[in-house]
Amino acid sequence: MNQTVLISALCAGFIAVAGCQSSQVKPEQYSGFLKDYSRLTEQQSPSGADVMRWVDPDLIAERYTSVYIEPSQLYPQPQPTARLSAATFKAITDYYDVALKREISKSLPLAKGPGPSVMVIRPAITAVSSSTESLKPYEILPIALVYVAASTATGSRDQSTEIATEADFLDGGNQQVLAQVVRKGAGKDLENDKQVLTVNDVKPVIDGWAADMNQSFMRVKVSSNYGGFGN
């Protein structure tokens, strides 16, 4: 058995303990924020990230001359902890609003509310978490297991952070769903299980989401084939 096969087998064997990190949002991780997840399919964003999305095949983007971005919300409502405070949750949603408006306004004027010819973006932060960093392949080898187990137990291992979003894109006149997206991303690693998570740890992820949404819309404007929002 060569080294690649050995590592793959060991990763599978230890997945219950550590997990093998994936950027794909799984159905069991859906929050319930969207009304219908059955239409979502796996796609790639302009930046190459995995996303789950659906776009109305009859969508005519030219109908929309401005965009209204609803204040982002937390769904489901989280319970603050010592490491993730209510103030941090608010800072994350506030920053999401800023990033979306900054990027989307590059392609469409911002509207003050929904209405005819207005596209509505309805975003939510659906998960923010930190957990012991997934085992690296070299750490899965038996000789390293004692150290890994000890450092995990004492909280000295790096803590990986994840944040997820779900968003609806609606017709501002009749509230018809035009598109949906579900995605997540990895924030900055925390040094241990005592370090407090802040909005700065996830800002790069949020910036990437907003930029991808805008790039997707720009593709719509220059192509007769709709590329999909948030993809």
Rank of each mutant, 00 (worst) to 15 (best):
F169P: 00
S23V: 03
S129F: 04
V128G: 00
T4P: 00
Q21L: 11
A210H: 08
F229V: 10
Q44Y: 13
E28G: 05
V199M: 15
Y147S: 12
A124Q: 02
V199Q: 14
D94T: 09
R39H: 11
K136A: 08
V182Q: 01
D171Q: 07
A86N: 03
Q29P: 07
Q176A: 15
A12C: 07
P78T: 09
V120T: 10
V146Q: 10
R219P: 03
V67D: 02
Q159A: 04
S131A: 10
V118S: 06
A61D: 07
V146Y: 04
L141D: 00
E28Q: 13
R53H: 03
I140T: 11
T161Y: 04
F217S: 06
T165M: 11
K101Q: 15
A82F: 03
D168N: 14
E133K: 15
S223W: 05
D168C: 06
W209G: 00
G19R: 03
V196C: 02
Y226L: 09
A12G: 15
P57G: 10
A111G: 06
G48R: 11
A82L: 11
V199K: 15
A99Q: 05
S117N: 15
A49R: 06
E166D: 08
A111Y: 02
E139Q: 15
I104E: 05
F33R: 07
Q180P: 05
S151Q: 07
M218F: 03
A153L: 15
